[in-house]
Amino acid sequence: MEDFRRCLERQERETNERNRRADEINMLQREVDEQVVIVVALQDEENQGLLRGSQVSRRRNMDRHRHSRGKNLLKDYFIPTSLYSDVDFRKRFRMQPHLFNKVMHEICNYDAYFVQKCNAAGVLGLLPEQKLTAVIRILAYGASADQVDEIARIGKSTTFEALVRFCDAVETLYTRYYLRRPTPRDLQRLLQKAEARGFSGMIGSIDCMHWQ
């Protein structure tokens, strides 16, 4: 009987010891879990500081040197002593410099998005010449956003937003004068111009496909 009692006591002590160790392990595991949660939260805060402010993404901020590229773009095309001539400008922008400047000023007056301004941190944004250069390269050449980024140092989301806003501005500002249906006087003028160039009866031509 005494031996049986001692056996029960020993089993009880062993059970209590196992329970104590299990409690210690659980406590350590909870502490580890709490530390992991804290580390993850701190890492998320750090990552949020590295994200672009206008778009949720895992991509880190990239310094595109947009301001220096904007200055170079002005020196290349948009100052009186520009590196490239008006002929080069016409080839690359598919319009004369004075027409580009006219469109740029009218669109900036219509939509302040294209006007250069400071962000919340006081940093100057993109020049209107940079945004319009990106848009024109896409429309005139079918360039991709990555190709435009190399030219004007503009991210993909900004490029697409500028493209949509530009098309909206052009439709609003110029539909009445340039995107309307031709009047009888317009048709007569186009027919005379085409006939003088050897294309009698042709009103318009796109890739040598004419319509009357």
Score class of each variant (00 low, 15 high):
1 M>I: 05
4 F>Q: 13
5 R>T: 12
6 R>P: 11
8 L>D: 00
10 R>K: 12
11 Q>S: 15
16 N>F: 12
19 N>K: 07
20 R>Q: 09
21 R>F: 09
22 A>F: 14
23 D>F: 10
24 E>M: 07
25 I>S: 13
26 N>G: 12
30 R>G: 07
32 V>Y: 14
33 D>H: 15
42 L>G: 15
45 E>C: 03
46 E>P: 08
47 N>M: 01
49 G>N: 12
49 G>H: 04
49 G>C: 04
51 L>I: 15
53 G>W: 05
55 Q>I: 12
58 R>L: 09
60 R>E: 14
63 D>K: 08
63 D>P: 11
65 H>W: 03
69 R>Y: 04
70 G>R: 05
70 G>E: 00
70 G>W: 02
70 G>L: 00
71 K>Q: 08
71 K>F: 03
75 K>L: 03
75 K>T: 12
80 P>E: 02
82 S>D: 01
85 S>G: 07
86 D>Q: 12
89 F>T: 00
89 F>I: 03
89 F>L: 06
90 R>V: 07
92 R>E: 06
93 F>Y: 08
93 F>W: 07
94 R>S: 04
96 Q>P: 07
97 P>W: 01
98 H>S: 12
100 F>I: 05
101 N>D: 11
101 N>Y: 08
101 N>V: 08
101 N>K: 11
102 K>Q: 15
107 I>H: 01
107 I>G: 02
111 D>R: 00
111 D>N: 09
112 A>H: 13
115 V>M: 10
117 K>H: 13
118 C>A: 13
119 N>I: 07
120 A>N: 15
121 A>N: 11
125 G>D: 05
125 G>P: 01
126 L>E: 02
128 P>K: 03
129 E>G: 01
132 L>Y: 04
132 L>S: 06
133 T>K: 02
142 G>A: 03
142 G>W: 10
144 S>A: 11
146 D>C: 12
147 Q>H: 09
147 Q>N: 14
149 D>L: 10
152 A>L: 03
153 R>A: 04
154 I>N: 00
155 G>V: 05
155 G>A: 02
158 T>N: 00
162 A>W: 01
162 A>Y: 01
166 F>H: 02
167 C>W: 10
168 D>N: 14
169 A>Y: 04
169 A>H: 03
175 T>C: 06
177 Y>F: 09
179 L>G: 11
180 R>A: 06
183 T>L: 04
185 R>C: 13
189 R>Q: 08
191 L>Y: 01
193 K>P: 05
194 A>I: 03
196 A>I: 10
197 R>V: 04
200 S>C: 09
200 S>P: 03
202 M>H: 11
203 I>L: 05
205 S>K: 15
207 D>M: 10
208 C>S: 06
212 Q>P: 06
